[in-house]
Design a protein around this nucleic acid. Structure first.
Lengths: 284, 284
DNA sequence: TCTATCTATCGAAATTTTCGATAGTGGTCA
DNA sequence: TGACCACTATCGAAAATTTCGATAGATAGA
């Protein structure tokens, strides 16, 4: 697989045409055609649907698009970083879903700062699939997430278990299927189990991916949604939120994900602290 | 750049020898030598130091190692994901930095839900470059962000201006360069202007990318950081935060970004509401 | 039906990659 | 010091791949 196949793919996707891509890339149209065919042979699926008006991405092509960008970016970044001076930057990029940052990881970050003042820390909230992608790309060093799809070359280590409960700010119990239910994306396992438990709610009218913000939104709007018990407990105590009696609960493990091949001197103090700080949060 | 160069590099790195790598890869030693030479030509630097006892990574080689792994992994993942079937979903995906969600866009979402009940909305917080990337990829339909690098094929429309001020929860004014300063990534313009205004703070010990969460963190930890005035005004009024007298202020326009080629029936009601709801937030 | 415009394919030429043989380098040992 | 050993580098030839220019094939529009 040559990066030029990815570049050619991206140019066809951008221009919508083999001929225009050829002009932009300073090669002939038949070279573009041959490269795309070669790429499709490697992938085992067509990536463009050809027509007289040009070429449109297939579903596989749309799926491949982000990988093509990643390939080009990783190679560009490789060239850049290798060409820079050999000065080693001491910084760790850590990622977790926004929920996990709130009330758990931020406190841990504060302790990390005091114990490892020479290591710069970059903290990022994001969706699991984005975090996984960045682990693979090397732009993220360490992640805490609900059960990840195992990134190749990474260790996945259990930290604690998180319980998700349905809560509502409405005065009467919400009805399943009604428009006051809001789906929040807590990760792939939750999505699957939620779809199994509530098939009629697979496509709610509103879904959010914003970490702690949805809690404020639910409070303000008489909605119901699933949240980690850790976050809603104070509101349940104060009566701001209620738990419908028969709603399902979901419990998911939270994992630490980090490279197998790593500088242990840099990583292990951080891993040890995360294990200590997070160990107490298990719902057991 | 062919992925096989990366694979060959990784095998030499693992075995410590061109000959052993050749055996493992089922090619001749001279092919390994030629590939490594080709890679070094592309990178402009040697990645191995050769000797009678084999080959050891240079500093550039160590730098390249993670990228080589990333290239191989991205390609493997691309093949995997393209081979899986892909179900197309029909809804509007909206993205904005977490800051903009908080206190502005969430209210707008509530109104959108009541006015357009048939359109499923997916709301995502994220960094601008990720949002821009997803706009280009087509996995995001609409974004609200500080000045974006113009995504090809998209309209960029001014919504309002946002003012960033330095605030502190410490009892005494923070000193620039001290460890109580926390850099929050509010986007490329802010990064550039901040670097210009405070070159000594280009590499703070802690940087976050978590939207509204950093505010709570600052309040709890006697730190200082830049925030949008819109978010901190209530805390300034209550005395929970202070504004250092001589700190720089930054004002940035906020833009709506959406595709030029779009289904206007689906988009325009949403665009109109965003224009109405956000118009009032300008600092003018 | 004809024309225009796009992609696909063909055969030839150009370029790249691989191989097997061997040169070059350097460490070890008698 | 010289022989030997073990590794990488280079060479020329062969094989494989890529690219090109010409043209076939498909299809939409007039």
């Amino acid at each position: 697989m040559d990066i030029n196949l990815a570049r050619t793919f991206l140019m066809v996707a951008e221009t919508g045409s083999f001929i225009d891509a050829a002009h932009r890339l300073n090669i002939t149209q038949s070279t573009v055609s041959a490269r795309i065919k070669g790429l499709e042979d490697l992938l085992g699926r067509p990536v463009f649907e050809r027509s007289k008006s040009g070429a449109d991405l297939t579903a596989a092509g749309e799926q491949f698009h982000k990988h093509a960008l990643a390939l080009v970016r990783v190679w560009q970044r490789a060239q850049l970083e290798v060409s820079l001076s050999d000065q080693h930057r001491d910084h760790i990029a850590i990622g977790a879903p926004a929920t996990l940052w709130h009330g758990v990881l931020l406190k841990t970050i504060a302790k990390l700062r005091s114990e490892t003042p020479d290591i710069a820390i970059s903290a990022t909230a994001g969706l699991q699939d984005v975090l996984t992608q960045r682990l693979i790309e090397g732009t993220l060093d360490l992640a805490i997430m609900y059960r990840p799809i195992q990134p190749p070359g990474h260790t996945v280590e259990h930290l604690f278990d998180e319980e998700f409960v349905l809560v509502t700010s409405a005065r009467t119990a919400p009805k399943k299927g009604s428009s006051d239910y809001m789906f929040i994306n807590w990760g792939a396992d939750f999505q699957r189990d939620h779809a199994t438990a509530y098939p009629e709610l697979i496509k709610p009218g509103l879904s959010l991916d914003l970490g702690s913000n949805p809690l404020e939104y639910v409070l303000a709007n008489e909605l119901s949604a699933y949240f980690p018990m850790r976050l809603v407990k104070p509101y349940l105590s104060r009566g701001r939120l209620k738990q419908p009696k028969r709603a399902r609960r979901f419990v998911y493990p939270v994992y630490l994900v980090y490279p197998e091949a790593r500088d242990e001197d840099a990583y292990d103090p951080i891993l040890d602290m995360l294990r200590r700080e997070c160990g107490r949060y298990s719902t057991d």
